[in-house]
């Protein structure tokens, strides 16, 4: 069987799917895992930029699927983490160039040589989403603590169940503990109660995220980013490690607050 295929999706755009995929890929690579990140957002290539690999792309996902290159030619190796590869999305081609069975076939070829294959799903619930979800062993649903994002997450969870890929696990991204404390933002507990699915990570809003994607160096690569630490913890959980939500690190104040939002529920992974 080999690698585990993990698809990152959300329904709504702009909630942080690509940032999450980039950071989890790097975090898993830092943990010594052999990782392939695949950008399934055909026509709107982005993952390469967030990972800082945009200048090195020669062949992309559609080239592989249509047989214009061999698979290894489309796998861009990260310089700093030689056990991490990216397969970029095509920038200009027809979205229907790739089918769900193409994705299953592609991941089947990649599985034996790797530990994790992460697929960055496009927004929406169309073909691209179905492509991204088709080969998934596990689906991570990224959402923000906002009504529209949570609603879309719920829709995605319903679809995953219909496709037999459910229920998936939740990542709540861009939470602002200070606003939660003031009662002006849904807490992580509110969101998980409403969606009633398992949560695998809470990522705080962090001003280091945008500069890091500006420079193509995901936050997980630096030690002093809270969001980076949150992503690292999610990566650990993906490898089967039991990482409690509250016991995250030395910036205790913030995470204690997040933990408090979970009430007595801290032992949950």
């Amino acid at each position: 069987m080999g690698a585990k295929v993990i698809t990152i999706t959300s329904g709504k755009g702009g909630v942080g799917k690509t940032t999450t995929t980039a950071n989890l890929s790097i975090a898993l690579a830092r943990l010594g895992k052999r990782v392939v990140a695949i950008d399934a957002d055909i026509g709107l290539r982005n993952l390469d930029i967030v990972m800082g690999l945009e200048n090195r792309i020669v062949y992309d996902l559609v080239d592989v699927v249509e047989g214009r290159c061999r698979l290894p030619q489309a796998m861009i190796r990260h310089k700093q983490f030689p056990n991490l590869y990216l397969i970029a999305a095509a920038q200009t081609r027809d979205k229907t160039a790739v089918s769900p069975s193409d994705m299953v076939a592609l991941t089947r070829k990649l599985r034996p040589e790797h530990d994790f294959i992460l697929i960055d799903s496009p927004a929406g619930i169309e073909r691209g989403f179905r492509n991204a979800v088709a080969p998934a062993d596990e689906v991570l649903i990224v959402t923000n603590p906002e009504v529209s994002a949570v609603r879309d997450a719920d829709r995605i969870i319903g679809l995953l169940e219909a496709f037999n890929r459910g229920p998936g696990q939740l990542i709540i991204n861009r939470i602002k503990p200070e606003m939660v404390r003031r009662g002006e933002m849904l807490s992580a507990k509110d969101v998980t109660d409403i969606l009633s699915i398992r949560i695998i990570g809470i990522v705080p809003e962090d001003e280091t995220v945008i500069p890091s994607s500006n420079s193509g160096v995901p936050v997980t690569m630096s030690e002093n980013s809270r969001a980076g630490q949150a992503f690292m913890n999610i990566a650990r959980r993906l490898t089967g490690e039991n990482v409690p939500f509250m016991q995250l690190d030395a910036t205790g104040n913030l995470f204690q607050r997040i933990a408090r939002l979970f009430g007595g529920n801290n032992s949950e992974t």
Binding site: G158, G183, E184
Partner: peptide, 26 residues
Amino acid sequence: DRLRGRDRGSKNKAKERLQFILVHDR
């Protein structure tokens, strides 16, 4: 905090709206 009171923030509004929307969506 004093201005709004801790329980009276917009989050409760968000929660109510979501619960209503999702029941119908589902």
